[in-house]
Design a protein around this nucleic acid. Structure first.
Lengths: 211, 211, 211, 211
DNA sequence: GATGAATGAGTGTTCATTCAT
DNA sequence: AATGAATGAACACTCATTCAT
């Protein structure tokens, strides 16, 4: 009972919050403005959200979780593949590209929210979300690396190996960020993704084939 | 004549400001705290600095200017080189690596200040400094690109070409950022720079040799 | 429901504000003092009033609006009368005196507020209120003037005519101001008003009968 | 020795001060701005002027003194005349007009300074200068009044008499203020002065001939 | 005669948050 | 489920003035 009204209030709040956060960034955003724009009192906001950060989470939390799950599921698939890899073998890059495309699709599904996290989350608990994503990928690329490099195990990786893998993880994330922030829509992003793929693949081989 | 005292006050202010800005970021930094820590009144601060942004500039302005000049001088050298380039010819990447090393050296000369710009400048007039740097490099890499690609002129570049060049410019900057924020000192950074170089060179060829 | 408390806070604020504004004038008045004297925090003030100027409006706004409406209603009556005027005819000055008395009564109804506007409003949005009042009267006296002067229409008024009418409008306002600031109460003011009336009537005829 | 430089500094200061005071009014004027615009340090200002108010006096003091002396000398002349006045006699108003013209000339000699006193002196020691001028005239008009009224002495003046004389003194000043602030130059002001004179003379007779 | 550094109290205003109702 | 009043600390910034040199 009253469920409808409740949802309505929360929705108005979230819509207004998204607008304000996007326009001013987390720190400069004013809860007063958000409430005023939503036609709701501050008390109401605090009934539904614990604090400013919680409200921000309300806006970007679900998209971020979905993105994370998309990435994780694709990474586990690729990690299966890589186990069957032996040096000299051709790796089927088509799979990787497809996985990346899947990520891009998710990004455009919640374009505004992700852009908010990328450039307006400083001060909130999402301020390190991009770095966290890179760290998440690091494990995955580490696995790929030592297999492709022909090492017997992860333990044989040098400090330099680890460093470059960490960088490539970051770069992978940056590619997604760049696509999202520079392409007006999903279609365009998917087109440009191919060029990006040439770049990053070239980069990988540059690294793998080096001393 | 008072010169000693004057410089002392400004120095204390700048030192205290650097600390506060680094710890809290531009926006959350408090001028009151900065003055208190410097043992100086707010009025004194405003005698030397126009406003908060001017104080921030006092901390990071000179290093940023120096960096910019280092980058620009190196870019102009490479642009001379590229004019003599003809397709099929081997480009001497050693020069590029040397230029990058020069940049890295400058970065570590003012490590703290650059890290401050990278991660704590939001809200200040330096908040877009990283993007500006990438834009600065874009012109340079555009020149390199069409020469290496064997185009007759810049005009033959497709939308996709421009997009990928723009990305590579960004990525070049990100490499510097990554080195600075992940290597404890210059020596270490210069060592890792080589691996990075393999990566980015591979990336370039991946892009150039593609359809 | 809190109605009592609410009104109480606003009332304390307005009372305290009136005192501070009256003692120091708009510009030198301190919102902090006002809040302290009202036993309220600055935040509370800003819940009820937009800014310093809005608080000032809270004190003098209503009286000013009422005064304006009294003046306007009386002016429209006199303007009807004047339409029936023909040169040589005796004008019934009793009506004018009665209208002026009505204004004086309104002035004393909110004596303190009007005195505040007269001498303490510099810097606020009411700083030109007196001049505005004179301008308001200017239209009215312009009508009276050309009728009494026997002109066929307003268009026949010379530059000198317009100037003197403008002055008389100002002077009419100044008379009210003078009464308010020099008579301790309404009764005394109404008594002195008659002398003032002799003066201004004499002035009018001096002007009308002149070349 | 150094007399030239000194004068130069003071002059720059006064010029800059006049500008700032005129633009912002006494209270909002900033000594810092004045010094900056004059190309001089705050210390220098305080060498020549005791404080903000003293600087303001530096700008408007001399013109005000000159005005006062012009008014006083003319008033003493008229006061001689009035002693020979007997009821029924025609008073030669030409003298009064001439005296007023003299005042107007002085006003336009330092137009800017007087306008500054009129509308920008609040907060300074000149904030009551206009009222003071009216009080100065009050004695004069009091003498005129009881002679013209046919009283045996000042002592026979009623409370109402005194009140109206006080008002007429004020109004005389207001006429000068109005002329100064509404006529672009002396010539124009002298022309309009005649109309004003008809008004004020009519006013006087209205008052004198009344019960 | 003039500098320039420094004071310290003050300004209006905004903020996220709380809580009795 | 929501109101609306209130808190109180914090903010960047400005001011007239002083004084050793």
């Amino acid at each position: 009972m009253g469920n409808d009204n409740t949802k309505e209030t929360v929705d108005k709040l979230l819509k207004s919050a998204k607008k304000e956060f996007t326009e001013k960034g987390y720190m400069k955003a004013s809860l007063r403005n958000i409430c005023k724009e939503a036609g709701v009192t501050t008390g109401a906001l605090y009934f539904f959200f614990k604090d400013k950060d919680d409200l921000f989470r309300g806006v970007v939390g679900a998209p971020m979780a979905e993105l994370r799950s998309v990435i994780e599921s694709h990474m586990s698939i690729e990690e299966e593949d890589i186990k069957n890899y032996s040096p000299g073998m051709n790796i089927d890059l088509e799979d990787d590209l497809a996985a990346a495309a899947e990520v891009v699709k998710t990004l455009y599904k919640y374009k505004e929210e992700f852009e908010l996290v990328i450039s307006g989350s400083q001060g909130s608990s999402f301020e390190n979300a991009i770095d966290d994503m890179a760290d998440l990928m690091n494990n995955h690329y580490t696995e790929m690396f030592w297999h492709m490099k022909g090492y017997k195990s992860k333990k044989h990786m040098t400090k330099e190996d680890k460093f470059i893998v960490h960088w490539m993880s970051h770069d992978q994330v940056d590619i997604f960020v760049h696509l999202l922030t520079h392409c007006p829509n999903e279609k365009e992003a998917l087109k440009q993704l191919k060029g990006m793929f040439s770049y990053i693949t070239g980069g990988w081989f540059g690294v793998i084939n080096n001393a």
